[in-house]
Design a protein around this nucleic acid. Sequence first.
DNA 1: ATTTTCATGTAATCTGTTACATGATTAC
DNA 2: GTAATCATGTAACAGATTACATGAAAAT
Lengths: 190, 190
Amino acid sequence: MAPVSTLGYALLSLLTRGPATGYDLTRRMREPIGYFWVAQHSQIYPELDRLADAGHVEVHEGEGPGPRAKKTYTITESGRDALAEWLPEPPAFQPRSEMVLKAYAANSADPVRMAELYQSIADVAAERLETWRAELEMMAEQGFSRPSHPRFGNYAVLKMGLESQRVTYDWATWLASRLREVVSEHDGAD
Amino acid sequence: MAPVSTLGYALLSLLTRGPATGYDLTRRMREPIGYFWVAQHSQIYPELDRLADAGHVEVHEGEGPGPRAKKTYTITESGRDALAEWLPEPPAFQPRSEMVLKAYAANSADPVRMAELYQSIADVAAERLETWRAELEMMAEQGFSRPSHPRFGNYAVLKMGLESQRVTYDWATWLASRLREVVSEHDGAD
DNA sequence: ATTTTCATGTAATCTGTTACATGATTAC
DNA sequence: GTAATCATGTAACAGATTACATGAAAAT
């Protein structure tokens, strides 16, 4: 049996929320799990074929709006089992952040522009922070914060999104202000 | 001119710390920037060739320990210019965290094992938190925290690493304890 | 009328990982 | 003597992005 990729497990996870088409999954992939895992439809369609071949999903074909049939996927028992086995395994750590990478070489570029960059990053984070804080509160009111709730995972992911934005906001704000110090020091010396 | 990849800019960033061989860069890539960007030597060697072709690095060949010549790379003015242009541009956001993805489907697996998973993640984060806190303090004492210091970037990256571990610790601890609630509720009901 | 949404696919390319391959020197 | 470190490379494969391609229905 061909092993399931991380994307495959991500799709199975999304399908625990109910049957969906590839198109649906492309959008479901955006919020909130998209804050921590992304995929384009060109990656999703072939992956669904593979999951179907492995018996982890069942396909139901119907009339499509375009020239092709619309395919609705449902997770199978085999899919649930595979997911349940994968979940408790230690996750791979795959760090990749251009935002932080750029900070590593921050003083190789114009400090004014770098300060602007991190200020704008902080501004975006501040906005998201507000939006997501409100969303999280709404979720809590709807009972999502109880671990037995079927959408508890959405709550947990959004909570992490919120904390991450908070850290980004604090760090980018700190970095921007430090970079502005360089500019004013320089001005004073000239 | 072939455009420089993100990995190429990462290598140029590392080379602002001084000339290095591919082997050196493979290790320099580990701390602290490796907390946010990783690359294997098999990716680094061909990328250095490309940077050399583009004139962004200069190569000096010497006697190697093995069968091949040892190549030392130095960043050129052209390399510094390319880096300085890339740095202030808005970074791509490339989120990929299996750790959070697994939380999205947390209640599709055995809560005992999931609680253990997030507890062990929290434990690892707690250890790193301590180590990195001490490292960051040492850096501050050596003056790295001043934005004009040539290693300010190391400080900024490690600071972000520290904050990220703190968030991971808090979140994973919260998640583990919530998952344990499910178990005790279940026990009570049985 | 035009754009957005729904809906599915493929091809070309780029990026990244794992494995294979060589060999001297230094540390245990 | 065995393992780790220094040092550079390639090949095969897997994973991900961008672009191309089609076409109906609904919304603006």
